[in-house]
Design a protein around this nucleic acid. Structure first.
Lengths: 138, 138
DNA sequence: TATTGTTATACTCTATAACTATA
DNA sequence: TATAGTTATAGAGTATAACAATA
């Protein structure tokens, strides 16, 4: 039995996930990239913007507008590093962490429903394989 | 154990698949969208360009440039429908079918290697679940 | 008048290269 | 001089609307 190509399948699934995340994020006033950045920052402060850009696969020049927005919303702080004032340390504010956690809860529920299309026994295996496959690409 | 979000995982995997397909397609003189269109046409002629655009998720105006290119390469034919001369029937040429099959062989090999990161027992289950999940979205 | 395909226009996103401030 | 961040410019990709041909 021929199956469709992986590119087709992953593209299809990614588009659906993005479409279903969009209203969840919009309810919190966030766009897709805001969420990516907040998620990265939840793993720890970024000592420089360049490092945050590298971690998220975003260009350093494109990052700036997103950070401006997040600072404006009060979700992120961006302060010069006293040790080297060229660097700016980016971190989540308390409100930023709260907003992120609210989004994560909603997204988790959406994902559970999406994966509900799989038989219960297969679901856990699928998730494990997905994580293993992504990890194999490092 | 928390796993990363589906959006992160699918995005990651899709990017890798695209990156690894690119040289295979380039060797055949194709770009990503060329391959998408040839694949769709392999399932049957497109009675109108609008229908082909809808099937591939492409805008009808953006489709035109791609078709111009494929016709130029001799991989696709685009002829007015005698029954309704507003429509243009798009089909694969013999050469188009050959080029597509060559690409598919290369992509299949690449995918086998990519999925080789999973234990042999899990691989088939993962592929089956992936197809089932995508099918559940129709 | 309605529809298919095409062309033209504007808009967004992205990439590259200057610019500033610190070191 | 070299680096972090910013800004400015140009390019690619995309969306929208007008247009020509056919029904």
């Amino acid at each position: 039995m021929e199956r469709p190509e992986l590119g087709y399948l992953f593209d299809r699934l990614l588009r659906v996930v993005i479409a279903r995340e969009e209203p969840i994020l919009a309810a919190a006033g966030l766009q897709m990239w805001d969420h990516v950045l907040l998620t990265a920052l939840a793993r720890g402060d970024a000592p420089t913007q360049a490092q945050l850009a590298a971690e998220t696969g975003r260009d350093k020049t494109r990052l700036i507008g997103n950070l401006d927005r997040l600072v404006e919303l009060g979700l992120v702080s961006r302060v010069p590093d006293p040790a080297d004032r060229r660097n700016r340390v980016v971190s989540l504010t308390t409100e930023g962490r709260q907003v992120l956690e609210r989004c994560q809860t909603g997204i988790r529920a959406m994902e559970t429903e999406l994966l509900g299309a799989l038989p219960a026994g297969e679901r856990a295996n699928f998730e494990r394989a997905l994580v293993a496959l992504a990890a194999s690409l490092d």
